[in-house]
Design a binder for these strands. Structure first.
Length: 937
RNA sequence: GGGCGCAUAACUCAGUGGUAGAGUGCAACCUUCACACGGUUGAAGUCGUAGGUUCAAGUCCUACUGCGCCCACCA
């Protein structure tokens, strides 16, 4: 094998761009539904990004976590399906295209429905695939051949099937009730699409209604004076003595020709609030609507669909809501009916999409009955058929489903799945999979113009993407009805209700089985100061800018378009203090560094603060992997892979044990959705164990005239084994750099074409676990560490050779240290005299000493510093060490003498404490001896 | 009104009842032959506050404070 041409620093872009195509060409991502394929299946339905969307940090996080899981399962021999797709995103997309039209001075109504839909499709074709391309940059490995768009013909079949079945079962019905109406989007919304903005400053406005035929009045309080135009009653509490004399009387509406009754209602009215009298507007308030039903009140709608006042508003007709409010107040004032204003905090219901204030409106819509399905979805989690991780979300999930209202699924939009219902001339309605032959336009039939909520099709995603309602091989293989299937749904907790809960309900309903075995919820990426990323704040970061590098001035042009550059820059730097310290731009961190960084956060953190500084550190890590591998390849030149024999040398046994340990932690971490644990252990293992210790120690083996030359063959075999294993260990987190290096590294002939096919280290490494080697290596490492400390404290130049000696009373430790003394010598850079390990014996004067407590007793570390070590300094140093030891001894003593510790603590814990005490006392005795010797300097 | 989360080194964060950890930053030294995107050593902690349980609490319980989020139709 020829030495690969590896340039010195790692250049991510150059490397990363090469491998994606290679993976696709080699079918790495492909899921198989061939009948002969016996592998167990593993499935993740990818949350389909919006067709309007472009890549943001959330996608990068999805990709990092899901790809890590998928690659891990794939490497372990699973038949993996990561199901990709795109969501048509009804309101969002329609809004975008309408805005385009607006710029051309057109409206969708001028265009007409058919032309408009064509236009949206055209736009989808142009830009809809962009995000998939961007996901490739992230190294995502879904089976692209199976990509689905929620408006694909197959998906439409599934949507119609689901709708019709629900209707047949009586679970899909049409009803006229109060719904959330967005006057800007001009459509009904589900409860979830309404965001309640808390703490808005409003006012509580009080005005009087005159009692009909009497010179009396009743004062009501309202936050929305304009709705009084739709008032059809005033309610008081039945037991409120202030109003008993008014029960059954009528009031005169000051602006419209209407007498409104005074009613008593104990549910609606809290006598302690306001004036104790409530105006009732059944057509525009959810409480009032219920009250109206209790008292058979008239429901008077006062709004047009665009939010302006209709003919029922009398003199105010035509005004929009805000104007109407002012006008009503003014008119009441003129009539002398206002009775005061108090400031009042209120929550404003806003449309998730447009931000407009949502209006409760009386409307006829399609509703999906949720009660029974919700119960099943709760039960499925309770019985563990689906596990929610982290578990703390179960409460939230249950609370949502226990209180769920029927789902308003119809939207007055043009972009989406048109509802498969046909309206006849006499108000007949036919629901069917296809237009029934008799329901022709000529006969006066027309299809319901409304479309379904985007989330309706999303709720079918796990099985509709597999071909449902047909019982396809893919459906049989990849839906959890297959017992040889494992599956996870990974997503941000923000769509737990929108998507996850609904998939649970529909999966259970239509497939009679949960749609996935586990729900993995992760937190949201926020800026470095903990604020949500948003365009307004100018703190949005495009993952591609981190991957390929970008000038801050370019970034803020995108995040705050149109804003003055200085202002935008200052906002950006405030949001990312560690970026500000980088100067004016992000360097190209590369995909692996970005993914690794995202992987190091526990997914369960609700907020994940993106600190660019961490990216820098992890880019350095990748560079370290690159350079370490280059170095190892030099050592392995001419090596051809051979079966690994059980090695003899301590450091070889040790590093194999450490790899086994790291593999164990990584496997447990990824499986338990603690990918951060896998990432951190990979980092620690590679940098600390492999680079800092193992590679340094092996330098002494490969050095000329090494006394360990006999271990060279063994060490090469171990190095090759560990290097190849370490790359596989890290592949799910850093796919590109590991593939690039793995392709150049010696490996068994049995391996496949790509590292992506694994195997993932685990069981086969376990047999090299060697706790004795780890224990011994600890002794060696701390002895060497003590020697380094002495050198550093006395400021011995690196190149200056000084004798090193270890002394111990334990023969086994002495021989252990004897064996590593040469390497210790290299690691502490004392070049002329060989370091030695001794049992007892006299000590040369002019040595600095440190004592290391080990399992077999203290080890004295002696560094000959004749002419350098100063008596006072040495004594002071020893005193410091003694002090530290005394503190530790006191801690253990306190514990051991503590009431009940010896009797009640576990035996191992007590024993460990006693051992520690013995060792520390022995070390202390040695140190005191050293102090006497130092005193003689 | 109900629910959830967070608070540990200067910063970003791990921590699973048993001697407080990492990365970054900081200080000193080192161009040393894979890597200065590096190496060695070091300093740095009232684990938010107050109680409680326990032989033992950063970890479990209670209350409180601060920050953040979600749900809810109170005029």
């Amino acid at each position: 094998m020829s030495t690969p041409d590896l340039s010195k620093p790692y250049e991510p872009r150059e490397v990363e761009e090469r491998w994606y195509e290679f993976w696709e060409r080699n079918g790495v991502f492909a899921a198989s539904d061939e009948p002969g394929d016996e592998r167990p299946a593993y499935v993740i339905p990818m949350p389909p990004p919006n067709v309007t969307g472009s890549l943001h940090m959330g996608h990068a996080q999805r990709c990092t976590l899901e790809d890590a899981l998928i690659r891990w399962y794939r490497m372990r021999g699973y038949n993996t399906l990561w199901q990709p797709g795109i969501d048509h995103a009804g309101i969002a997309t329609q809004t975008v295209v309408e805005r385009q039209l607006q710029r051309e001075g057109k409206t969708r109504h001028e265009l007409g429905r058919e032309a408009f839909e064509k236009r949206v499709w055209q736009w989808k074709e142009e830009s809809g695939g962009r995000i998939s391309l961007q996901q490739r940059v992230l190294g995502a490995s879904p089976d692209w051949r199976r990509t689905k768009f929620t408006m694909d013909p197959g998906m439409s079949v599934a949507v119609r099937e689901a709708f019709v079945r629900l209707h047949e079962e009586g679970l899909m019905y049409r009803a006229t009730r109060l719904i959330n109406w967005c006057p800007t989007c001009r459509t009904a919304l589900s409860d979830l699409e309404v965001e309640n903005e808390e703490g808005a400053n409003g006012e509580l406005f009080e005005f009087a209604y005159q009692v009909d035929g009497e010179d009396r009045e009743i004062v009501v309080a309202t936050t929305r004076p304009e709705t009084m135009l739709g008032d059809t009653a005033v309610a008081v509490h039945p037991e409120d003595p202030r109003y008993t004399s008014l029960h059954g009387k009528f009031l005169v509406h000051p602006f419209v020709d209407r007498r409104i009754p005074i009613i008593t209602d104990a549910i609606l009215v809290d006598p302690k609030f306001g004036t104790g009298a409530v105006k009732v507007t059944p057509a525009h308030d959810f409480n009032d609507f219920a009250t109206g039903k209790r008292h058979q009140l008239e429901e008077i709608n006062i709004f047009q669909l665009d939010g302006t006042m209709n003919e029922n508003a009398g003199p105010f007709q035509g005004l929009d809501r805000k104007r109407a409010r002012t006008a009503v107040k003014k008119a009441l004032e003129e009539k002398g009916l206002t009775r005061g204003v108090k400031p009042h905090q209120l929550t404003l219901p806003r449309c998730q999409r447009s931000g407009d204030i949502v209006e409760p409106m009386l409307s006829t819509q399609w509703f999906c009955k949720m009660g029974e399905m919700a119960k099943e979805a709760i039960a499925a989690v309770e019985t563990g058929r689906t596990q929610i991780i982290p578990e703390e979300w179960v409460k939230t999930y249950n609370h949502f489903l226990e209180n769920i209202q029927d789902w308003c699924v119809s939207r007055q939009l043009w972009w989406g799945h048109q509802i498969p219902a046909w309206h006849g001339p006499n108000g007949d309605i036919r629901v069917a999979r296809e237009r029934p032959p008799e329901c022709t336009p000529e006969n006066g039939w027309s299809q319901d113009p409304d479309v379904l909520d985007t989330w309706f099709s999303s709720a079918l995603w796990p099985f509709a993407t597999l071909g449902w309602p047909e019982n396809t091989p893919a459906l049989q293989r990849f839906y959890p009805t297959n017992p040889k299937q494992e599956s996870d749904l990974e997503t941000g907790y923000d769509i737990l209700f929108f998507w996850v809960a609904r998939m649970m309900m529909f999966g259970l309903h239509f497939m009679k089985e949960v749609p996935f075995r586990r729900v993995l919820l992760s937190g949201l990426i926020v800026d470095e100061t903990g604020d949500k990323m948003s365009k307004v704040k100018g703190n949005v970061i495009d993952p591609l800018d981190l991957i390929h590098g970008a000038e801050f001035t370019e970034i803020v042009k995108k995040t705050l378009p149109g804003a003055p550059e200085a202002e935008a820059l200052s906002k950006f730097k405030k949001a990312y203090p560690s970026a500000a310290a980088m100067g004016g731009h992000f360097p190209a961190f590369g995909t692996d560094a970005l993914r690794f960084t995202l992987a190091t956060f526990p997914p369960s953190n609700k907020r994940i603060a993106l600190a660019p500084k961490r990216l820098e550190g992890n880019r350095h890590f990748i560079n370290k992997i690159w350079n370490a591998t280059r170095f190892a390849l030099d050592q392995l030149e001419g090596y051809s892979w051979q079966e690994l024999q059980q090695p003899r040398a301590l450091y070889n046994r040790w590093i194999l044990s450490r790899l086994a340990n790291a593999s164990r932690i990584a496997n447990a971490g990824i499986h338990g959705f603690r990918i951060d644990e896998a990432a951190n252990e990979s980092y620690r293992f590679f940098w600390s164990d492999l680079c800092d210790w193992y590679l340094e120690l092996t330098k002494t083996v490969f050095a000329e005239h090494s006394p360990f030359a006999a271990d060279r063959d063994e060490t090469r075999a171990v190095l090759a084994y560990v290097l190849e294993g370490a790359l596989r260990l890290m592949h799910p987190l850093m796919p590109f750099v590991t593939e690039e290096l793995w392709q150049r590294v010696p490996r068994p002939a049995t391996r496949s074409a790509s590292i992506a096919f694994g195997p993932y280290p685990g069981a086969s490494e376990e047999k090299y676990r060697d706790l004795l080697a780890e224990r011994d290596m600890d002794v060696v490492a701390s002895a060497i560490g003590a020697a380094r400390t002495i050198r550093a404290e006395h400021e011995i130049k690196w190149a200056h050779a000084v004798p090193l000696e270890f002394r111990t009373d334990a023969p086994e430790i002495a021989s252990l240290l004897e064996r590593v003394a040469f390497s210790a010598q290299v690691l502490t850079k004392s070049t002329t005299l060989p370091a030695v390990a001794r049992l007892g014996g006299p000590r040369a004067s002019g040595t600095a000493v440190s004592v290391v407590a080990t399992y077999a007793g203290p080890v004295e570390v002696l560094v000959g510093l004749q002419g350098i070590v100063k008596k006072d300094e040495e004594l002071a140093r020893i005193e410091r060490e003694l002090k530290r030891l005394d503190k530790d001894i006191a801690t253990v003593d306190k514990k051991l003498s503590g009431k009940g510790f010896v009797d009640r603590a576990p035996k191992e814990v007590v024993e460990q404490a006693r051992d520690q005490r013995t060792q520390m006392l022995a070390a202390r005795a040695r140190l005191e001896e050293s102090r006497r010797l130092a005193d003689e300097l």
